[in-house]
């Protein structure tokens, strides 16, 4: 509670200082709009309903990309952990695919899929893939050898061992990867829109930049940050719920 109050006071102090600095007239509103102006713009965007379609587009990209990246990352992690020889063959390629700056793929993806949702969902999925893949692989390989022996002794086959032992014990690590992926999904969606979006919060930032509306840019920042925090907290809640069922210790 104390710390919350302190961080709220800090925010208030920064905003007041910022407002005063802007009102003193030493900085052009074009360069740095006052917080009150940003709030006004934000309210205008919300009340007029102009913001909602963009928010919906960005969230759709984010969710679709996150889902695709999660399914692929989890699947690939499971596959390569079950077949270590495959892992050794594919590892350099997986790594290379992650080292390619994915935004640089944007123009290519737009050529392939055209402008719109698809290239951005693909970029987001590519970004979300890696944390899930790595954490799934790490988590599955960390299962206690003694417990594997127990399952061997109990005659559990591969699938059963995966479902009843490996995945449950890897769950906390996998969920940590998912949390990272969620944050990256928002970044992926917004920045993906910079490159190839027609709609969405990122695309709106580019549009605002082209008319030098810095107040709108800042208002969009606020929306994006709020969205990120909301999604992160939701993920944490989901994680706590799942872990309570599969509590580790």
């Amino acid at each position: 509670m104390r710390t919350r109050l302190a961080s709220a006071l800090l925010l208030a102090a920064v905003l007041i200082a910022w407002e005063a600095w802007c009102r003193s007239g030493r900085v052009s509103a074009l360069v740095l709009p006052a917080p009150s102006a940003v709030a006004g713009t934000l309210w205008g965007e919300l009340a007029s309903g102009r913001l909602w379609p963009h928010l919906r587009v960005t969230m759709t990209e984010m969710v679709l990309g996150l889902l695709a990246g999660t399914v692929l990352g989890l699947g690939a992690g499971i596959l390569l952990s079950e077949w270590p020889s495959l892992h050794r063959v594919l590892r350099p390629y997986v790594l290379a695919s992650q080292l390619v700056p994915k935004l640089a793929l944007g123009p290519l993806l737009i050529l392939w899929f055209g402008f719109g949702l698809t290239p951005i969902v693909v970029i987001t999925a590519l970004i979300c893939f890696f944390p899930l893949f790595e954490n799934t692989l790490t988590g599955l390989d960390q299962v206690e050898p003694a417990q594997r022996e127990l399952f061997r002794m109990l005659g559990a086959g591969r699938v059963r061992t995966l479902l009843r032992l490996k995945l449950p014990s890897a769950l906390p690590v996998i969920l940590a990867g998912f949390r990272v992926a969620i944050v990256l999904a928002l970044v992926g969606a917004v920045v993906g829109e910079f490159v190839g979006g027609r709609q969405g919060l990122g695309a709106s930032i580019i549009a605002a930049q082209s008319v030098m509306d810095s107040s709108l840019i800042l208002a969009l920042f606020v929306v994006i940050t709020a969205l990120g925090m909301a999604v992160y907290e939701a993920a944490r809640g989901l994680e706590a719920l799942i872990l309570r069922r599969y509590a580790r210790d």
Binding site: E144, A146, Q147, E149, L150, L165, P168, S169, R245, Y246, A247, R248, D249
Partner: peptide, 9 residues
Amino acid sequence: FQAPTLLAW
């Protein structure tokens, strides 16, 4: 086994 190896969940 020497260690209990119970499943924590």
